[in-house]
Design a binder for these strands. Structure first.
Length: 540
DNA sequence: GTAAACGTTGTAAGT
DNA sequence: TACTTACAACGTTTA
């Protein structure tokens, strides 16, 4: 009879380095001489049904890399398709699991799922231990420092971080100890049932995306390599002088930002390892720019938005979201068509369509490019709800992250955090500012490759004769612009003004429901602790 | 309690 | 080219 097993459930911690939950699982398995079984679940509730092939490929590759790394240590990752709430209790019985470990997640769907899995396991006598690790600071700890009230501004967040001090330093795999694992008594049978294989993209119902576009390689190894390479550039000077708003959103062959977000989103790279590398540079050169704009600041933005997402209900939607301005976005038949036009890169604005094409092909866009797309869809031109844009980004982004996607869509649509609604990104001027000749557009929209620079951002203004000569007739080979930007943006500024005059924010529909919002993570903070101060402020 | 300062990353027109 | 200013002016935080 095999001894009871220890289970580590991988989720958004697809790494070996600085994985405290995994290290604890290893420690307990070693101490009790138990086999350690690592598990990843392809859960349809977590990966959107219509998730793009590019996004799925990145996830699959990250899991595959994890499996290889584990195998070097004699651990066999099981990859199972199904709903975690069903799969885990089943497997716990099959493997006679006594202890289960995982890293905490903070979005509402994961929290509800984890609470249910933990209940089921505990009910059948399995120990469940969870560890923070996805963020620099444990949000429950942070909220205790600010009476359950997440700061609403970055300045406030930076002050809070000053109180918190440096996050803990990263751990190494197995805390640097050599470990030999007990024989895995279930391996033979699990292998026979295909649980040690990762389904191919085709198995998962995807066509392999064509590869001539920039492909980001998934996994811990690729992420760490990217981090080290970035930090090493010009002996650290690039990090020291880094200012996000000064990096070029139209750069495509050589990116000016780290492109580490996909690895942070899946936990391939620990944010503490990133933090540590930045500290090493800081010891040599002082960071030159405003804290918010430095790379360190980017990590703090992530903390900030996750703290808000964790403490504000319905953070991913307008209704019932107490920080979100209630705006009467268009929802008629025509707006559905406009939404499709935007999502399918057919707006007739080359800068916008090139950005959307980049999203489709590569699953990644520079932050400022996302600004252009988001402003255009919402308050800039189309007056369509940010929630619709949120969904499109969720489908395609390899770095999709619940908190950052929600917060940034609210930011750009002036629904929360940002209020200067008369600052509208122009779908023509903004790109031109970075890339006068439109090389970004030429790269992503080959149909416009031969359009002269003078017209590349506004091809509809090119004389018909020129359009014929360069083989790109507007209205035939490339669409006419779907709106007049000047008219649309002015109209929308007026609509925004009305919304601001109303000053209506989301209300919680049922004040009594689910009083304990952080139960999945054993928090002592109840929903009322979090909500009350916001309500008070609104009255003022 | 109240007034003033401040807010990661706009545009167009002017000097 | 590099800078300033008008645009129209909100909510949060601090003094």
């Amino acid at each position: 009879m095999p001894s009871p097993a220890v289970l580590h459930w991988f989720r958004r911690d697809l790494r070996l380095t600085d994985n405290r939950a995994l290290n604890e699982a290893i420690r307990v398995a070693k101490k009790t001489k138990s086999p350690l079984i690592p598990l990843y679940i392809l859960d349809p509730n977590l990966i959107p049904q219509n998730c793009s092939a590019v996004r799925m490929r990145f996830l699959r590759e990250s899991v595959s890399q994890l499996r290889s790394s584990l195998l070097k240590h004699g651990l066999n990752l099981r990859v199972v398709r199904g709903q975690a709430t069903q799969v885990i209790p089943d497997l716990a019985g099959r493997w006679r699991v006594r202890d289960t470990f995982w890293e905490s997640e903070y979005d509402p769907v994961s929290r509800e799922r984890d609470a249910q899995v933990a209940r089921d396991l505990k009910g059948s006598g399995v120990n469940v231990r969870t560890f923070p690790g996805f963020l620099l600071y444990d949000p429950d700890d942070v909220l205790r420092h600010c009476n359950g009230l997440a700061p609403r501004t970055m300045t406030g967040m930076l002050k809070l971080v000053e109180i918190l001090g440096d996050p803990r330093t990263p751990d190494s795999f197995a805390n640097g100890e050599l470990v030999e694992f007990e024989e895995d008594p279930f391996l033979y049978e699990d292998r026979a049932q295909g649980m040690c294989d990762i389904p191919s993209l085709a198995d998962l119902g995807y066509q392999d995306p064509e590869n001539r576009w920039d492909v980001f390689e998934g996994g811990e190894k690729a992420g760490l390599k990217r981090l080290h390479r970035f930090v090493k550039q010009k002996n650290g000077r690039i990090v020291a002088d880094f200012a996000k708003p000064k990096t070029n959103p139209a750069a495509f062959s050589h990116r000016e930002t780290t492109v580490l977000s996909p690895y942070l989103a899946l936990g391939c790279v620990s944010c503490r390892v990133f933090h540590e590398r930045l500290r090493e540079v800081e010891q040599r050169y002082a960071l030159q720019e405003m804290p918010q704009t430095t790379l360190w600041g980017q990590l703090i933005w992530r903390e900030h938005f996750w703290l808000l997402a964790y403490s504000v209900k319905n953070f991913h939607q307008m209704r019932g979201n107490v920080v979100c301005r209630q705006i009467n976005w268009r929802a008629d038949k025509q707006s559905e068509e406009l939404l499709r036009t935007w999502a399918e890169a057919r707006t007739g604005f080359p800068w916008i369509d090139a950005l959307m094409t980049q999203l489709h092909k590569e699953g990644f866009i520079h932050h400022l490019g996302r600004h252009s797309l988001a402003c255009f869809l919402t308050r800039g031109d189309l007056w369509i709800s940010w929630e619709r844009g949120f969904k499109v980004f969720e489908k395609y982004l390899i770095d999709y992250d619940y908190a950052l996607n929600s917060a940034n869509w609210m930011w750009l649509s002036c629904s929360a955090f940002f209020v200067m609604y008369y600052r509208v990104y122009s779908p023509v001027t903004y790109g031109k500012k970075w890339d006068k000749d439109g090389n970004f557009i030429r790269h992503y929209l080959p149909v416009l490759r031969t359009m002269p620079s003078k017209y590349i951002y506004e091809p509809w203004k090119a004389p018909k004769e020129l359009q014929r000569r360069v083989g790109c007739i507007i209205g035939k080979d490339y669409p006419e612009p779907i709106v007049d930007h000047r008219t649309a943006s002015q109209c929308n500024i007026a609509r925004m003004k009305e919304s601001f005059e109303k000053g209506e924010f989301g209300k919680l529909e049922d004040e009594t429901e689910s009083r304990v919002i952080a139960s999945a993570n054993n928090s002592i903070i109840t929903s009322d602790d979090v909500r009350e101060p916001y309500r008070k402020r609104r009255r003022r």
